[in-house]
């Protein structure tokens, strides 16, 4: 891991009227790390992602990405820098088919110069689209309209559209929410292996602690706009404050599992 963090957030603040959704958030994320963000409803997780990717302007603080100050820039400019996200509520083109969704994403990601004036689907683009659909298990629903997809497939499409641009860092907002329990691990395996292969730095928000345990190197626990714990999962998930305020469980913690042991090794 390099010395300069890929993402560096300093004293980040955000308030909506009386509600403080972010308070003095300080986080450095080294390239290649997989970070899990946990926190109860309304803790400020989505707000954090919104600010980092430019959807919301912070009330205070700075965000640096690959050494460059990106505080308050438009989302599309963050995307140009290699920083993108998926959405808690899937943001896809509802009246277009899965294929058309991905083709639109590809056409925009691969455009250069006058490419926008040429017809959309060249053969390379079509081939790339097929490859992505295969990787994300969307081939069977390629011609379905996005509005007709299951929650799980729509989430996958949403993520796939974000990945198309080949980001250096990807923020996933609850990639498995609204997805049937038995599908969750399948989705995460699909997504995480694809991202691992491309060396993308990942931060994902997740309510399911088993998933957090399985995939992340490091946990950020949010409570009421503050980061109350920043540690490898083996430690974070047994932290009493985290158990009380985030997981809502004050029973004595269990011994770390094999999976978290590995994750701790990766973090260290």
């Amino acid at each position: 891991m390099t010395d300069v963090p890929i993402l560096s957030v300093k004293d980040l603040q955000k308030s909506f009227g009386a509600v403080t959704a972010a308070k003095d958030i300080n986080v450095d994320i080294p390239a290649g790390q997989v970070v899990g963000v946990i926190g109860a409803n309304g803790a400020g997780k989505t707000t954090f992602v919104n600010m980092v990717t430019g959807y919301l302007k912070p009330s205070g603080g700075t965000i640096r990405f690959r050494g460059r100050d990106i505080t308050g820039i438009a989302p599309r400019l963050a995307v140009h820098q290699g920083l993108t996200r998926s959405f808690q509520v899937s943001q896809v083109f509802m009246t277009l088919s899965v294929r058309q969704n991905l083709l639109s994403a590809l056409a925009l990601a691969r455009r250069k110069g006058g490419a926008l004036l040429r017809p959309i689907a060249g053969p390379e683009l079509l081939a790339e689209c097929d490859a992505i659909m295969a990787r994300y298990g969307l081939t069977d629903v390629a011609e379905h309209e996005a509005s007709a997809l299951s929650q799980g497939s729509r989430k996958l499409l949403d993520i796939a559209m974000a990945v198309v641009s080949g980001p250096r860092m990807l923020l996933l907002d609850e990639p498995t929410s609204g997805v049937a329990a038995e599908e969750k691990f399948a989705i995460m395996d699909t997504v995480m292996s694809a991202l691992k292969a491309s060396g993308t730095t990942v931060l994902f928000i997740e309510h399911d602690m088993e998933i957090v345990e399985r995939y992340v190197d490091r946990v950020l626990a949010f409570f009421s706009g503050e980061v109350i714990c920043d540690a490898p999962p083996a430690r974070a998930l047994i932290d009493p404050k985290v158990r009380e305020l985030v997981i809502g469980d004050t029973r004595a913690p269990t011994a770390p599992t094999a999976a978290t042991g590995q994750a701790e090794a990766a973090y260290a």
Partner: peptide, 8 residues
């Protein structure tokens, strides 16, 4: 929103 996040 999605179009913005596709960089356009």
């Amino acid at each position: 929103i999605r179009v913005e996040y596709l960089g356009y």
